[in-house]
Amino acid sequence: MSAAAEGHEAQSQDILAKVHHDLNVWGFPDEPIDLGFGPVFLKTIVMTWIVMVLVIIFTVSATRNMQLKRPGKLQLMVEEMFLFLRGLAVENLGTKKANSLMFLVFSLFIYLLFSNLLGLVPTMMSPTADVNTTLGMSLSVFILAQVLGLYYKGPSYFKHFVQPFVFFLPINIVEELSKPLTHGFRIFGNIYAGEVLIAVLLGLIPITATIFGGFIASVVWLSFSIFVGFVQAFIFTMLTIVYISMSSAESH
């Protein structure tokens, strides 16, 4: 009985491994390799480069020959995105700080959006489905928030660690440290789960073909993943704005 269960489990794992193996047409190694400064995941790095190239192509072609009175479609997309994010930033940070941080917010959103959507292209992978990317960015945002807090408020920035009482210090520190962790793992979990489910649904096609119409579940999940990609990119950007505004607000 237990042998049969183990065999079944091994079989299902084989299916997933087989799907992953079949999808890996570019031959990226699963194990981290050493490129000279330590072990890295080659696939994540290459996918990030692809995303960077796509972002650069998209934004440059959208902002080349910008029209004042009759904007093109790409230009309009970028402008609307920018205005939407600026509205959020101005609401939370105030006009002056928002304008100085707008390039970061905009770049973050468009980079995460393209990263999230790249995983939906067959054989590609979201850079955000690797915890290194998301945690790296959330740590950068964390450090940036601390630096900006110090910059805008001076030494009185440290006061909020001991509020309302001194013995709240450990709680405040834990709270502060939990921010980048949740920030990074939230988007990682969503996107990674999306990618796993894409692979699982692909692996299940031989089983579901006769019951649920095979690829329909996969298509539905892909379209939902587009939505999730937008939402997660938006949440990450929004939380970045909120963390910076919390750490740099005058009245804390």
């Binding site: 400064f37 995941f41 980079y111 790296g136």
Partner: peptide, 13 residues
């Protein structure tokens, strides 16, 4: 699975 990829990703971004 955290390794130097993190640094590389920050650098890329």
């Amino acid at each position: 699975n955290i390794n130097q990829t993190l640094v590389a990703q920050v650098f890329n971004f």
